[in-house]
Computed example of a mutant assay.
Amino acid sequence: MAKLIVIPTFTDARGSLSVIEKQIPFLVKRIYYIYNVVGQRGGHRHKTTKQALICLGGSCKIFVDDGTDKRTYTLDSPDQCLLLDAKDWHTMQDFTTSATLLVLASELYDSSDYIDEKYP
């Protein structure tokens, strides 16, 4: 099942600095971000790709179904990171106007890695 972690953040009079060093349990091979969203994104799981999702600004909701448990996560702070296993069927929705969702992926894009069918 997905896991929500807190990214270490250092704040002083100049602002905040969040650092990801050892918190993500895979080597990042692909980085992309989603913004200007109208409607729902995702609607799939993967054969091998693991992901880490961070909403850099604004907020969004991530629905996750691992075949046993279902849960919705709200990402509304850049110090939150949602780790998704390959088996986690997920959708991303309810993006605020200013939301930008950063995704760190364990694999390069491969259309054959996607499984679009929901769990029964």
Results as ranks from 00 to 15, higher is better:
M1D: 13
K3R: 14
L4H: 03
I5S: 06
I7G: 01
I7R: 06
P8T: 03
T11R: 05
T11L: 14
T11K: 08
T11W: 01
T11G: 02
D12F: 06
A13P: 00
A13I: 14
A13C: 06
R14M: 15
R14A: 11
R14C: 15
G15W: 12
S16R: 03
L17N: 11
L17M: 04
S18G: 09
S18H: 10
S18I: 02
V19S: 09
E21M: 09
E21T: 10
Q23A: 13
Q23N: 11
F26M: 12
L27H: 15
R30K: 04
I31K: 07
I31Q: 10
I31G: 01
Y32G: 04
Y33M: 07
Y33S: 08
I34R: 04
I34G: 02
I34S: 11
Y35V: 00
Y35I: 02
V37E: 14
V38G: 02
V38D: 09
V38P: 02
G39H: 14
G39V: 12
R41M: 05
H44W: 11
R45T: 10
H46G: 00
H46P: 07
K47P: 01
K50T: 11
A52F: 04
A52V: 05
L53Q: 02
I54A: 00
G57P: 01
G57Y: 01
S59I: 05
K61Y: 09
I62D: 00
F63K: 01
F63A: 11
F63P: 02
V64R: 03
V64D: 05
V64N: 06
D66P: 09
G67K: 03
T68A: 15
D69I: 03
R71H: 12
T72D: 04
T72Y: 00
T72I: 15
Y73L: 08
Y73C: 02
D76L: 10
S77N: 14
P78L: 10
P78S: 11
P78Q: 13
D79C: 13
D79T: 05
Q80E: 13
Q80V: 03
C81S: 03
C81W: 00
C81P: 07
L83K: 01
L83W: 10
L84W: 02
L84I: 06
A86V: 05
W89R: 06
H90S: 03
H90F: 04
T91R: 03
T91S: 07
M92K: 02
M92F: 07
Q93I: 04
D94W: 09
D94A: 14
T96Y: 13
T96V: 12
T96R: 13
T96C: 07
A99C: 07
A99T: 06
A99K: 04
A99N: 04
T100I: 15
L101Q: 08
L101C: 12
L102H: 01
S106N: 08
E107H: 14
E107Y: 09
E107L: 09
L108F: 08
D110V: 01
D110Y: 12
S111R: 15
S111I: 14
S112G: 06
S112C: 00
D113V: 14
D113P: 14
I115E: 00
I115A: 04
D116Q: 04
D116S: 09
D116G: 03
D116C: 08
E117R: 00
Y119N: 08
Y119T: 07
Y119D: 12
P120C: 06
